[in-house]
Design a binder for these strands. Structure first.
Lengths: 213, 213, 213, 213
DNA sequence: CATGAATGAGGGTTCATTCAT
DNA sequence: AATGAATGAACCCTCATTCAT
């Protein structure tokens, strides 16, 4: 009954993942060394290679579950019943922002980086797939909220919307304040940002329709 | 006649700065080596150490002038006569975005960075001062455009505005497309983003005023 | 009933030896890892250490049987009835060459080696013994083929003969072609090499006898 | 006048080359580490990278000059006036063998290895070119000595000849005796080997001609 | 002023080997 | 008997930096 050993192994792996997550988050992918991660995880640096083929693989194993959880939470927020369009978008945005602030530096890895590796390998492309999925979810939800069909118009609005929440995350992703503190302090601002955008989108819409007449 | 030597020295220093600016801009701080900079500048890598204590110092000496130039250009844009409020903000934003995309790697340094080093050294704080200056310029201009007095209200709007343009810069700061190509392709979107925000701000204003009545 | 266990153990050991033999043969000693051997043998890499103190020991335990088999086959070839002297030597050589090419990496270990380790351990000396045995077999057979008594003369001829077949083996021991392919393509050349040597030995003999007269 | 520095640099480089030559020779390419070489050369291991891009480059820079010198010496031997065919071949062979024994382990690198890298890069291919050049020189000289035209016949003879001298080199390339000692002790045998081959080639020739009649 | 030479610290990764189960 | 977990030593290589000229 090698249960005990198995458990130990999973603990080690978890410790590695946790350490890597924290360090990547704090200092960025490149700046973190395998040895640092190992020390933080309380094991030898070679042990990491038992569980992860290399540094990049570690990163990706680290990135996928959180991103999938984020997707789940965003989907929930997007389909919340009995909420106005604006409220839904605000919830969606809060979920996204909170995730980014809770994962700090990792965030930079998810949404920055790697333009040059998009095409190369599979691990990276899985992240890209997830990224794209998030963006599509955003677009769909925004389309419903604005009553816009798929198309250039909606795409442009989605981009603008994405810039906004991406900008929020980016702005605070290096702050020393905790995610909780930031959320508490700034949620009104974030909500207002969403409200402003929605108002603006609608106003633009009206203008154009008026223009058409 | 030490004039000649002095001049030569100035030239060398300028070459180093230019090379570093370009390379940091293209590839980011970490990815550039001192030897690369030296080769691009046409001197030995040891020469760099004559003018700059170390790599980081070089970076900071390098960051200030572009940021100051940016400030200048933004100020010009902000005070352009005979332009509507929206147009002024759009110009301002384009200047900012173009700068960020044209300086890629540098951009990450100006607006990302270094929570842990903000307090350490002085050069960093100069960057912070400049950063703050830019934000104030933005706020002032936006205040004028919206007819808002200084205060919480304007601050919130400025933040939201900043998120937007920061998000734009962040989104494309890792793209492989050239700054020019990106600007050509996306300027309409960027302008629209500004327009949407302005519409939204105004709409919010009206709502509130209506609410007050 | 420890019989069953013992049998299982024998099987495992045999599997390890077989795997190691194949892999060392294919890729050479250094290029093969213990884990590779274990995987090929269908056991854990730690199991290997139950049967063999370390990698080197495994190598030596591995080397002896093939060499003994080679000796057996060479003896058979040497005493083939109803064959001319030249044919016997050709057969003998083919057996040797085929063995070397079929065992590639191993070959280098048998005949290359390790000047610095010859004296260290005993296992090596067993290999040396076998090596010597092979050489003696060669000499004896050649002596019969040439009608030469033991002595300096025969020794010199044997050496020359050995250089030839050793050279053949060495030449192709790094080729990527399979042993079979090489044998098919080059057997005529190898046979001719032997024929040339035998003709040469005989001619030399005649010359000397003529000289004596 | 940086002459002094230049001189120092060349000394260092020479020391590295010498150390690498010795160590590669003693222990083989793979078994030698850059740090070992550096220690032997009396410098830091990073210094090696100033002069040589990487380990393989070092090897090749190390291999080419000796091989070219060998070629020169073999050409001289091949064209020695007033020598019989056999004598010329003997001289040629002695030069080759002496070189191999004098360069021990390096020899294994020149004439063993790297079938798999023949196609990859340039450095390796330069060695291959040299190797081929030597073989062609051998073939040409042997053709003249035997009065054979270019063709399959000569090619087969050349191969057999090459096996012989390659076998000699291989046989003693791991011996602990010095090159000089070996040459002194075994030159008669080597010469005889050549003589036997030449006799054999000629005899074979006669046989065939007789057969044709 | 400017440079080539030289280095130490450290990067990711591999591997034979040991330990606890 | 057999295994998975874990490790330390070592490998090749890079880089910012210093020293002597």
């Amino acid at each position: 009954m090698p249960r005990l050993q198995e458990k130990r192994a999973e603990e080690t792996k978890a410790a590695i993942v946790a350490a890597a997550k924290q360090l990547f988050g704090e200092k960025g992918y490149e700046a973190v060394t395998m040895r640092e991660i190992a020390k933080e995880a309380g094991c030898s640096h070679t042990t990491i290679y038992i569980y992860f083929k290399d540094k990049e693989t570690l990163l990706h194993h680290l990135s996928v579950p959180p991103l999938e959880e984020l997707r789940g939470r965003m989907e929930t927020a997007a389909s919340e019943p009995g909420a106005s369009a604006v409220e839904r978008m605000q919830k969606l945005s809060r979920v996204f922002i909170e995730f980014c602030l809770g994962n700090r530096g990792l965030y930079g890895i998810f949404f920055g980086v790697n333009s040059e590796r998009v095409d190369t390998a599979s691990p990276s492309s899985e992240i890209n797939r997830l990224r794209l999925g998030l963006f599509n979810l955003l677009r769909r939800t925004l389309g419903e909220a604005l009553g816009l069909p798929d198309g250039e118009r909606l795409l442009a609005c989605s981009r603008i919307y994405f810039y906004q929440i991406h900008g929020i995350a980016a702005t605070y992703s290096h702050s020393k304040e905790s995610a909780d503190a930031l959320m508490e302090r700034l949620t009104p601002t974030f909500d207002e940002a969403v409200a402003v955008l929605m108002l603006g989108f609608n106003a633009l819409q009206s203008n154009k329709e008026v223009g058409k007449q």
